[in-house]
Design a protein around this nucleic acid. Structure first.
Lengths: 355, 355
DNA sequence: CTGTTAGCGCTTTCAA
DNA sequence: TTGAAAGCGCTAACAG
């Protein structure tokens, strides 16, 4: 007996469009048309059908609908993790815009593992997401570029659109939308803020070579130094991940290694800043009286620790990504948007009077 | 001309199982069997098919597969918002466990609006999610109970499972899994902590009647007071939402309304605590020297402001929800789990010496 | 305005 | 071990 014969074994099952049609005494096509609301129909029929729908508690089967050629209404977002505030805010932006455009949102996490990322993108491809949004900084080596380009092409082939959010572009021949924000500009601005206050020895916390985000922030820092004709001391660039614990560790080690040779600190993000601040306090140094401190992101702890930082339009990033992806008439288009960043001045910087 | 005739208009399209079959010189059934790996097959055929798959860059169509009767491998999570740290952490837990069990994760947000929630659950039903996880506190009135019960039954009918995460149970006859954490116990413990330190006038910040989470925390507070034979003053319970800004506002208003009539503050969550702390500082009061302060959740700002608080197993909540939902052999089962909470002592409480 | 019907791409009998 | 064919639930020609 074929599986499909489905003997009436008493097991109730969700009702189908056929059940509704039978119940209302019309054809399935009529039900389909009335539900999609794209065709005119007799009010009486309409009423009958809606009544049947309600009585049978019918919901359409999204798989069947997707199969039958209707563009599946969903966008996918792939992030390293949802708990990181930056990703969470971007994800929120994606969500908002997706809902506004009547789309479902699928979220995948990779934990920062490229292999896992590949698998996740594959999965999204199976699901026929209208757009796949990759967010987060990564190692920008050649292998990566190659793979991304392949994703983009495969997605374009399937009528979908790859979006790189907060990642560097891949080149004009790759059909991907890129939505970035101005890391270099923000870092330049906040370093200048410190320099204008008289600081010349500024510790950079969170250098992480090969990763696009810290790399650009470091670049902005260096450029500001150069613009202000302040000598660049590589010894002031401390390596570390972009986490609170790393910030704490970097600062403790630096302070314990010898006499303090800096008057201000630029943390590559607010979490590092929070960790560094805890370390400073532990060693009896106050912010901003003894040491000035700035961060980057304008996220969660920033306000609580009165941190002067660079505001990043996280939600806007996500919203723009969706808008661009769905807006482009032809999927597989290359576009590039750069969102601005700006300083938020709180109370973590004091002028340094050089003598 | 029927849509399906699909003239070869030069538009490349994603390859189907049929393309693979043709390319490998076998039947679609063979390809299907080899890809699912559930049937024995000749090694030579296997190789041919895998080669074709690689060459054509074939990925299966999840819709078709879903339609053909394979349980769609996805769980859905519905939250108020992903940026709220609590939801983010629960979502992360759900993600983790979902991935571990080989499932895709669909995230929907409601913005706290019941109507929107209904629509979202409906959507998840269309998608045939294996489990629908609702997280977050809500108004627990009769209309809500009714609607939830309906969800649960509809989902069960479709072979799915409703999970209520951090929400009160609905009753034994409703086929839903409930995963809660001990709000009352945690609130009781931390209030006792304050009472043991000699505080008798404890301000409760964030009463919000009708919402399950603040309600239970308030209940724990009251019970601790009663257990310690400390008179209960309703005037110490301040109404407000569970947000930083509300915490700030509540505290400012209280301080400006007259002489301070409390020595300690129990904020219904860490965000309220952070806002209240900012307000206290603004009015020249230090934590913990002048006022003791505790929170609930053990999330983001808690560590940075040295807050003694109640730890909630956020991720574990999400993981348990998925495990239970997928583990129950028969969907539509009722289960109930209560996860424990415990105090994290930092540095926001000082003994109060009563005279 | 409504009914009939042919697929969408896949899995799973059944037969060989 | 493999192939042929039915059918999952839905939509969109096409023909009334």
């Amino acid at each position: 007996m074929p599986r499909q014969a489905r003997p009436d074994d008493g097991q109730p099952r969700p009702s189908t469009i056929r059940d509704v049609a039978r119940h209302a005494g019309v054809s399935v096509a009529t039900v389909s048309r009335i539900l999609s609301g794209t065709y005119p129909s007799a009010p009486a029929t309409r009423t009958k059908v809606m009544k049947a729908v309600r009585e049978l508690d019918y919901v359409a089967n999204a798989h069947a609908r997707g199969l039958a050629g209707v563009r599946p209404k969903s966008v996918a977002i792939v992030v390293n993790s949802v708990v990181s505030p930056h990703y969470a805010h971007v994800a929120q932006g994606v969500q908002d815009q997706a809902v506004r455009e009547g789309r479902l949102c699928i979220v995948g996490t990779t934990g920062g593992d490229p292999e896992h990322e590949l698998a996740t993108v594959q999965l999204m491809r199976e699901e026929h997401a209208e757009a796949v949004i990759l967010v987060g900084n990564i190692v920008a080596d050649d292998a990566y570029r190659e793979r991304m380009a392949d994703y983009a092409r495969a997605l374009a082939l399937a009528g979908s659109q790859l979006v790189l959010c907060g990642r560097p572009p891949l080149g004009d021949d790759v059909p991907a939308v890129v939505v970035e924000y101005d890391n270099v500009g923000g870092a330049h601005a906040i370093t200048s803020h410190l320099l204008s206050a008289g600081h010349k020895r500024i510790l950079f916390l969170g250098r992480y070579d090969g990763y696009s985000t810290p790399d650009s922030r470091l670049a902005g820092y260096r450029r500001a130094l150069a613009d202000h004709r302040v000598p660049h001391d590589p010894g002031l660039e401390v390596q570390g991940r972009m986490q609170r614990s790393a910030g704490y560790r970097m600062m403790i080690e630096r302070l314990d290694a010898g006499p303090r040779d800096f008057t201000a600190v630029f943390a590559a993000n607010d979490q590092i800043a929070a960790g560094a601040r805890a370390a400073l306090r532990e060693r009896g140094l106050r912010v901003p009286d003894d040491v000035s401190l700035v961060g980057f992101d304008d996220l969660s702890p920033a306000e609580d620790i009165d941190l002067t930082t660079v505001h990043v339009p996280h939600e806007e990033l996500g919203r723009t990504a969706v808008r661009l992806a769905l807006g482009s008439e032809k999927p597989g288009t290359a576009q590039h948007v750069l969102l601005g960043t700006h300083i938020i001045v709180r109370d973590s910087v004091r002028p340094y009077l050089d003598r």
